[in-house]
Amino acid sequence: MNSQHLIGVAAILMITGLLRVNAEEIGGGQLVWLLLSEGVKQQFVPSPATSVSQVQPKPAVVQARKDAHSCEVLQWDRDKFNKPVMGIFRPGKYCLDQDYEFDCSFFNHGCAGQMIEIRASNVDLDFRGHTLRMSGTRGYIGVWGLGQNIRVHNGRIQGAGLGVTLMNRGASPGNAYPVLEVKTKDVFSDTGFVVEHMQFSDVLTAVEVAGSGNRIRDNVIDARLDAKAASGLPFALLSYGPSARIEHNTFRLHDLTPGSSGYAMYLRSADGTVVEGNTVRVDDTPTGTIGVGLSSSKSVVLRRNRIDTEKSVELDRRSSMIQ
């Protein structure tokens, strides 16, 4: 017997049962409504083969789409989020196809977070010349990443409190801020982060990375050394961990808080790091500015850098360098 005959039999049985109900208990209109609704339910009852797992919930972050250049295009789900939120949760090549801007007004209390969040290893993020622009807030991060072998390149970040921060489990750049004591138990895995060909403008900090074997090169960094807005002594770049290469970056420093100190580059636990071919200049008075700060960092190589700060290098007693 097919499904149509079964539905017909069910309807006849239902009618028979309903006709036994006292007419005073159920009106004619109600009777018609019950018959119709029962028929509708019979038509739309899911078959036993249908699984609940087959119904896919709406993803928390909009799915990226492939473009002609074999990268997944990140997109802001404007219907779900009132500020740019884009996530990367698996390895692969990703890119932007437009600029993104976030203006956080005084009345908006959600002025912290990150525009792009990476929680995966082996990720290549190509801005393709586009810009992440933030205004009205310094609590926002351009790119935040947790993993290994993450590359961020070919774009611009403007107005952020922090442009790019990359780390792996075991060590965080936040553990190495100049005001904090040296941590001896942090473990530096081979992270291999790369930040290159990026332009940072009007940021408090452009780049901070933690791990071993990272590369920060060929970037243009315009940073405000504003001690009142930063967490402790301000810096434009922080590298936490050994064997990094910081090469051919151009720094422009300004707005240093009077009576404070600030660093273009601050390195901690950076044994064997190479700092080469960088240019550092200060727009206003150089008083209090430091080109390279070394904390618990041995055998750091400094060569062919042009540093126009009050103090080119500052070392603590646990540090040494090779020029």
Rank of each mutant, 00 (worst) to 15 (best):
D186W: 00
S70E: 12
E72S: 15
K298E: 15
G174I: 05
G110L: 08
I216R: 05
G27N: 13
M86G: 08
A229I: 03
I216L: 15
N149W: 01
R304Y: 10
V274F: 04
I12C: 04
S261Q: 11
V207T: 15
Q54V: 04
E247W: 03
T257D: 09
V203D: 13
Q30M: 06
L267E: 10
G232L: 11
M14G: 04
N149P: 00
D126W: 02
E196I: 05
C71E: 08
L302G: 10
C104S: 12
G161L: 06
V179K: 00
A171E: 06
S295M: 10
L96G: 03
Y266N: 03
R90D: 11
L233G: 00
R65S: 13
T50G: 00
L146D: 15
H109V: 14
D99R: 14
A60S: 10
L315M: 15
F127D: 05
G272A: 09
S189V: 11
P242A: 00
N149S: 12
V21F: 06
G39D: 04
G161D: 13
M198G: 11
A60V: 05
D316Q: 09
W144K: 10
V187I: 14
F107N: 06
R128E: 06
G192W: 01
V40Q: 05
V195W: 00
A230F: 14
V300E: 02
R245Y: 03
R224M: 14
G39C: 02
N168E: 04
V187C: 03
I157T: 08
R245D: 07
T285E: 14
G17Q: 07
A206L: 07
M321R: 15
L180M: 12
F102N: 09
S51E: 12
G155Q: 04
S243A: 11
L233P: 02
L31E: 01
S295E: 03
R128P: 04
N22P: 00
A270I: 07
D99P: 01
A236C: 05
T287F: 01
D308V: 04
Q56L: 11
S299K: 11
S135Y: 02
L146T: 15
F193S: 06
C104E: 00
V85N: 11
L125P: 13
S51H: 08
V123C: 03
Y266T: 06
G110M: 06
G174M: 09
M167N: 10
A120E: 02
M167I: 02
R281C: 05
D103E: 11
Y140K: 12
S312W: 02
T285Q: 13
